[in-house]
Design a protein around this nucleic acid. Sequence first.
DNA 1: CTGTTAGCGCTTTCAC
DNA 2: GTGAAAGCGCTAACAG
Lengths: 352, 352
Amino acid sequence: MAETLSPTVLTLKDIAREAGVSLATVDRVLHNRPGVRPDTVRRVKDAIARNSFQPHVAAAELARGRARRFAFVMPSGPNPFMQQIEAYLGEMAAWLSARRLNVEMIATDVFEPAALAASLEALSGDYDGVAVVALDHPSVRAAINDLVDAGTKVVTLVSDVPSSRRHHYVGIDNIAAGRTAGALVGRLVGQRSGKVAIVAGSQGLRDHAERIFGFNQVMATEFPDLSVLPVLEGRDEDDRSEQLLARLLGKHPDIVGLYNVGAGTQGVAKALNDKALGAAGRDKQVVFVGHDVTALTRRLLLQGVMDAAISQNPGHEARAAVRVLLALARGEPILSEQEKIRIDIVMRDNLP
Amino acid sequence: MAETLSPTVLTLKDIAREAGVSLATVDRVLHNRPGVRPDTVRRVKDAIARNSFQPHVAAAELARGRARRFAFVMPSGPNPFMQQIEAYLGEMAAWLSARRLNVEMIATDVFEPAALAASLEALSGDYDGVAVVALDHPSVRAAINDLVDAGTKVVTLVSDVPSSRRHHYVGIDNIAAGRTAGALVGRLVGQRSGKVAIVAGSQGLRDHAERIFGFNQVMATEFPDLSVLPVLEGRDEDDRSEQLLARLLGKHPDIVGLYNVGAGTQGVAKALNDKALGAAGRDKQVVFVGHDVTALTRRLLLQGVMDAAISQNPGHEARAAVRVLLALARGEPILSEQEKIRIDIVMRDNLP
DNA sequence: CTGTTAGCGCTTTCAC
DNA sequence: GTGAAAGCGCTAACAG
């Protein structure tokens, strides 16, 4: 009826006695430090395994004294999503401080490979861990690998560099996110047939390109009655997005769906709204799916202008990045299920 | 360019010196222990506040020696959702063990108020914290309050007892979950008009009742073309659910939507499927929204039988319950944003 | 009411 | 290669 999940209460000392060595030697083996004869290593490892010994993290943390330093390398522009991540890191201040963890924010032009790479190189040696919103570019990849080689733990955040040797990626699968957007647009349009517009920042951005890919995939295979128009590139700017979309809406009166891949949401909403004023009833309305829950998209969802937002929880991403860096630094296993970032579908009634 | 989030490096000793008292006195003040003159308390509190001092959790944890014991009181039946929660607790074994935390599972008939209350009473004094899947009943409420009075930290899990003095609820807002289900059914049905069926376990269960309430609310106000049929009570059993639903589908050929509030999903899907065999094209199909991602609902989503599942992440709930109990026991603040359980909309393309 | 002191279970010198 | 010993920053007796 009652089942215990964690029986261990042994200490390093017990293991030392059992293996017939001293505390220091067990510690060396535990951390794969050199200077122990191979068969001594085996004896100790056996004793550890036999008792499924878990060192007490609190004791380890206390003994090492030195506080850990982590750096977050983030885009310098006024991106609301990134600001949310920073805000959530700020909310963790007390938690971090109680664990003697130091987190520093470093702003960089992440769209400039050379600048980003330089920022990363500059961190070498000074930090136990680095989280970076990365651009997938050879020089960035090289900078990441250099950090890893220097012993720094590296996680990519929001945007990955899969070809690098980063230890972990904290973010969503953007192809699946695009597919999800596609399925939503298709299903919410219902029986109607017509055209679907896509507004992206740039098809050169890896995450945008992946989302578009996933979106088109679903459209092509599952919603043959809907035809997707060429992608508009609004550079994540409101004005430009509005102009491009307004022109498109004028040219194609039969647009029934819209996927906004990146930012520029304000402009997109404006263009849509202007069109709605000239149109007829509710069923003429365009299904509008975008990304991320911000003050603006929240309002648009409540007003019924936007139908759904695909979201990656910025608070979760911030905390997951810290926890993963900490686990890596401590040599603890990562709770992968916990750190996986989900693709959230947010509609008016489940707004967080 | 680089901004630090956690500067503190002081220790208890520093505070003691600054306040002109001993270590022990600072410790007493820090934990609101009695036996300190009021103005000494003030002096110490000032020193703490002035330096925004954060005691080192690792040191505190290590010094107290005694391991913490938590109990999870869960339903005894073969409920897949509860089994998932238990499985995720199992995955945390190493994490728990490295922190010297003991988690015990206690199975009880949670639908029997007296049995549940007795189980809770039996825990008194033995545990630092208790997580319980609770039934909202006076005797259960009393048992919870007794535990709280005895100094045990209590969180309700999945199902709340708001009238009790439990410290925290880890679970979703079920009214909002029902509203979300309603919005999904309504939007996915599209232009069609017709009837909507509801299958629940029992309207006597608080969470089911709340979900139905939210669902009806949205239906009434936003989808006037859809009329909701009286709730079928399948007692979360497959056979009973199937029979009831099959009969209803036979009687109303114009059913276009279905909300399955609880379990019994297998039976619901069977009834739907049998009907589909006799029906015509895809557009005749019934929009089917249910709860929770299990092996079964996952399959149904992939097959297109189910259109969406409203889900509360069981892994998140398990970990949140542990973290909240731990924070409460340590007297640490709770990261409320982190511990809040979201209402997930899961469709085929964002299956976790 | 307040202070002194002996650890908690590790990590880290420094000797051997 | 290996061991002994001095802490890390708290908590919890026990004295005063």
